[in-house]
């Protein structure tokens, strides 16, 4: 069996675990159903269905999407250790580094699915209620719907990359405990604490070091022309988050 094949099979079984679990399916439903208040894009939501999706992403970035990553990463190692299946995984002839990498990739794919579901559900619901058409950017210029959808796709990728940073922290936390709930709560607390710190203007010196500080920067994709300065810093803070994962690879 080739190494690539083995990795793919591992990834397949991971994805089956993620998508197959009832609580994850329920989570996806909840995430798709959440609509409501928010800032920035909300004011524009009634003018175009696209903004419903963007508002939904803005709202869910604060709690629901990080929560989903926390649940998945809690399951990834601590969950397996808890049910005793981790030892079987470790006995198969797969290097631990590769096992971790596969676990991590499946977490990122899980995050991507979550973001995608929120976005697509938002566009469909927004399209039904408010219609779709040329989109007015934050700068007041209009772009055709197709170009706007392209920018939404970029936003999905950017938010997935942001959540990948949290997933790295989550995977690290998951290796510290055998209680999946403990890992989930820890990761949720970490992301929530970062959001709270980010909201306190007196602590602005710490903000550049908080990965979540750059998460809402996907809004910069909807300026004319697109603005990348803040998102570039977002990727730099991703590197910081990745550090958390490095210590368990050997």
């Amino acid at each position: 069996m080739s190494a690539a094949n083995a990795s793919l099979r591992l990834l397949g079984s991971e994805m089956h675990l993620i998508v197959g679990r009832r609580r994850n399916q329920a989570g996806i439903l909840v995430r798709a159903a959440v609509r409501g208040r928010g800032t920035g894009f909300i004011a524009s939501a009634t003018s175009n269905g696209i903004f419903v999706a963007l508002s939904a992403l803005t709202i869910e970035l604060a709690l629901f999407l990080p929560l989903a990553v926390a649940v998945l990463s809690g399951d990834a190692i601590a969950g397996e250790a808890n049910t005793g299946t981790l030892r079987y995984l470790l006995t198969v002839p797969v290097q631990r580094t590769r096992l971790l990498v596969i676990k991590y990739i499946s977490l990122v794919i899980g995050a991507f699915v979550g973001v995608l579901v929120v976005t697509v559900a938002g566009i469909i619901a927004g399209g039904i209620f408010f219609g779709l058409g040329p989109v007015t950017l934050l700068s007041g210029d209009e772009i055709p719907l197709v170009e706007a959808l392209g920018r939404v796709a970029l936003a999905v990728l950017y938010i997935t990359a942001c959540l990948a940073g949290l997933a790295a922290i989550g995977l690290f936390v998951s290796t510290l405990t055998e209680q999946p709930i403990a890992a989930m709560i820890t990761v949720t607390i970490i992301s929530t604490a970062m959001w709270i710190l980010d909201g306190i203007s007196q602590l602005d010196w710490i903000h550049p070091w908080l990965p979540v500080h750059y998460w809402p920067s996907f809004a910069d994709l909807f300026r004319n022309p697109m603005f990348f300065d803040s998102m570039r810093q977002g990727f730099a803070s991703l590197a910081w988050a990745r550090v958390a994962q490095k210590d368990i690879t050997s």
């Binding site: 800032t39 920035g40 894009f41 004011a43 934050l138 700068s139 007041g140 809004a219 300026r223």
Partner: peptide
Amino acid sequence: ALLADADEYDIVRNGQDVWAYSN
């Protein structure tokens, strides 16, 4: 273009026309 979180205020001058747009 004055930037804020998911918001923008633009002042555009084109010859003798000046536009101020508040998102």
